[in-house]
Computed example of a mutant assay.
Amino acid sequence: MAYDLTGKIKLIQEPQTFNSGFTKREMVVTVEDGKYPQEINLEFVQDKIALLDGLQPGQEVTVTFDIRGREYNGRYFNNLQGWKIAAADASFEPAPDYDSYQGMPSQDGDPGYSDDDIPF
């Protein structure tokens, strides 16, 4: 069963390759959850680590993942294993330059429009 979460990337780790040839890369996504934001660690394995290329901290993403569980020496562990990322690029655009935005006053006091632009 697949799950989705949406949040902002807090950090992306470097890939780790183990002696067995297994490779993984982890990322932390901050999810706004009521009063207290949650920092969720997700891992990407083998060929899925390439999905993290080009992403940056602060970027809003939706991650699709599976929950994986296992037992080791009588203890149980869970992992969130990501396999799809959709970046919300529109929300990651830099703030607009309001000085060049038509209709907004510039810093020198010029209102950015003339009397002919006013509809009344």
Rank of each mutant, 00 (worst) to 15 (best):
R68C: 09
P57K: 01
I49S: 00
L42F: 12
T62H: 02
Q46M: 14
E39D: 15
R25H: 06
P57L: 00
D66V: 02
G69D: 11
Q56H: 07
V29M: 05
P57T: 01
R25T: 03
F65L: 08
T23S: 15
M27T: 08
T23P: 04
E39H: 14
Q46T: 13
N41E: 15
D66W: 05
K48L: 13
F77L: 07
N78H: 04
V31D: 10
D66N: 12
G69T: 15
I49F: 03
F44E: 04
D33T: 15
V61W: 00
G58K: 01
R75A: 09
N73C: 06
E32N: 12
K48G: 02
G54C: 08
E26Q: 11
Y36I: 15
F77E: 02
I49C: 04
G74S: 05
T64E: 06
Y36W: 15
R68P: 02
D53N: 09
F77V: 03
F65D: 00
N41V: 12
R70S: 12
E39C: 10
Q56S: 08
K48H: 11
R68A: 15
V61I: 03
Q46G: 12
F44D: 02
K35N: 15
R68H: 13
T64D: 03
E39V: 10
I67R: 10
D33A: 14
N41I: 11
M27N: 07
L42K: 06
Q38W: 08
E60S: 04
F22V: 07
A50M: 12
V45D: 04
G74I: 10
G69S: 10
V29E: 01
V63W: 03
K48M: 11
Q46H: 11
T23R: 06
D53K: 02
L42R: 12
G54S: 09
N41Y: 14
K35A: 15
Q38H: 13
Y36D: 13
P57R: 01
T62Q: 05
V63D: 03
D66Y: 07
K24E: 05
Q46D: 12
F22K: 10
L52S: 03
N78S: 12
N78M: 08
D66A: 05
T64G: 04
Q46W: 05
Y76A: 10
D66Q: 07
T23E: 06
L42E: 09
G58S: 04
V29W: 00
V45F: 09
E26W: 03
V29S: 02
A50T: 10
E71A: 09
G54D: 05
F77G: 04
I40L: 15
Q46K: 12
G69E: 13
Y36V: 14
L51N: 07
I49H: 01
T23Q: 09
G58Y: 00
T64M: 07
Q56F: 02
R70N: 07
I40N: 07
F22L: 11
D47R: 13
T30Q: 13
D53P: 00
R68G: 05
G74H: 06
E43R: 10
G69Q: 13
E39S: 14
K35Q: 12
